[in-house]
Write a protein that binds this DNA or RNA. Sequence first.
DNA 1: CTGAAAGCGCTTACAG
DNA 2: CTGAAAGCGCTTACAG
Lengths: 332, 332
Amino acid sequence: MAKSLKDIADELHLSKTTISWVLSGQAEKKGLSKRTTERVLKCAHKYNYQPNFLARSLNTQRTGMLGLIIPDLSDTFYASLARLTEMEAEKNGYTLMIGSSEGNYARENNLLDTFRNKLVDGIIIASTQKCTILFDSLASDGYPVVTIDRLIPQLPFSSIVLDNRQASYRVVKDMIGKGAKRIALFTTNSYLHEMQERRIGYEKALQEAGIESQYVLDVPFEEYASNLIPMLENLLSQQPAVDGLFFATHTLANEVYRYFFQHKISFDAYHFGCIHEEAYYRSVTPSIHVARMPIEKMAEEAVRIVSECIECRIAKKEQPQEHLILEATHNF
Amino acid sequence: MAKSLKDIADELHLSKTTISWVLSGQAEKKGLSKRTTERVLKCAHKYNYQPNFLARSLNTQRTGMLGLIIPDLSDTFYASLARLTEMEAEKNGYTLMIGSSEGNYARENNLLDTFRNKLVDGIIIASTQKCTILFDSLASDGYPVVTIDRLIPQLPFSSIVLDNRQASYRVVKDMIGKGAKRIALFTTNSYLHEMQERRIGYEKALQEAGIESQYVLDVPFEEYASNLIPMLENLLSQQPAVDGLFFATHTLANEVYRYFFQHKISFDAYHFGCIHEEAYYRSVTPSIHVARMPIEKMAEEAVRIVSECIECRIAKKEQPQEHLILEATHNF
DNA sequence: CTGAAAGCGCTTACAG
DNA sequence: CTGAAAGCGCTTACAG
């Protein structure tokens, strides 16, 4: 069985206090004798002593953990975000707990509940936003929360998002620059603020180029895989003049690329554009216009801000509120 | 601020005991009056009371959490495994904590330490096996651990692995069946038992078909991306008769496919084979021979076994030890 | 029908 | 140089 402080104290005929001080590196500060210090260290090592995380955290009111909630672990964007956030958290002395809501608000709420019941010191979340009741109580508790990728309007949380409008505008503009004249927009989850911004960017680019024809396909998110392809086929047959396909999300793009691959349809006949770049896009020719998400920066800022909030909360100071809008990078 | 049991008890002039009983659904069993029960419920609801996870867990000696440690979150195999394990854990009443070691043993050890310091009730791990000292102490503490995908020899943990030899054998046999005569094996991390098994399967298939020529490329895992392609180019130019490429891991396959795509090399000239199927392989023609990992089954069994171990540990019974070898499915 | 008390395993002000 | 004691917020045997 794992040993506790008390076991060691008993064995060495010392108090728990002494053991705790040695083990937390305060031996010198507290003026403990070298001999005592060494005896304790040796004994702790002998039993491979590890302090009980729960007891320590209950006492210190900190767990040293950060929680990250994302909608989908198998999505390359969120997987990278998780990975980079983990690295960044580690740099800042935190352990990251990752939870995936699978786009399901019940799961999201569960995770939020588990996290905020003192399990993590702060939360970073890309919310499904299908149900935001818990956020109010999080906010009124002053629980440190940073929203990432997806902003939750009207809540007093710091946020880090892509400049969606600009990213989208730039991709479509580049497509036009390469000769595309009739560009269709594929979007989904259009109730999200981010998606609206992407649409505005698309429209702005068209407008600026004096292009009037718009083709907007709003794919229902549920079962989008089965809806998307018929919608695509319909578009291509009804509107043969379409020469550009712009996808507001890489998941839509992936489905369509797969369709192209499988039916051996050449990419040459169309200009492609997409927000977020998957590794394999680089293998596709001709190239796809992409807006690359500044994932590393997002992770970095999220951890920085949530750490600051945590410190302020402990110091009972007001927590900072920042709203960062980051720029994408482009491949053209 | 978040309210505690005591706050509610004070406000209602009841004891913490009563509140605790009501909130844990034992009101009836303990014979509390309807009126009291309702007052408590109402008050708890008013403050959106959530029991402090740390305090509860410290007391009950369970956290209701399972830990999963994988080598790489952005690897599609492990990402799926994580996702399915999460679902399965939920079904069994556990919350899953996911940690990624990034193939780094220091990170792996850190995660193990964090987890076993009473944070999770049991651990499921695909270990890097670069450093296994912590496992001994885990084993001697009787901490519930199940190894998945990668077996750690000589340790008394239950394990769930693919029948690597058979999977590999079958893929190579199928490639031969389709006409491949000279098949090269690409492998990496060959110190792992799993990789050795895959190699044996490859050799067995060749032998059975009376093929003598073997081409084994053992790619160093560190910086494999920069080593692999030169090794491939070298093979193809030195051994023009090679007509089959079999990859012991999908990561190797991915790099080579990308190389083929980018250089517009046709897939037609070679037979391809690989362990684990990425979604996009289905878009590649001609088809790649794959052994599909039984990920769902792996997740299911892992959660089942670790739960059983946890129950046994609480009941102070001996924990079961199972060694499951699961079969892959094939696309030919 | 309800409560006082002990205990989970730590940390840390306080006292000597 | 070292220790006794309180407290973090719960749960649960024990007592009435």
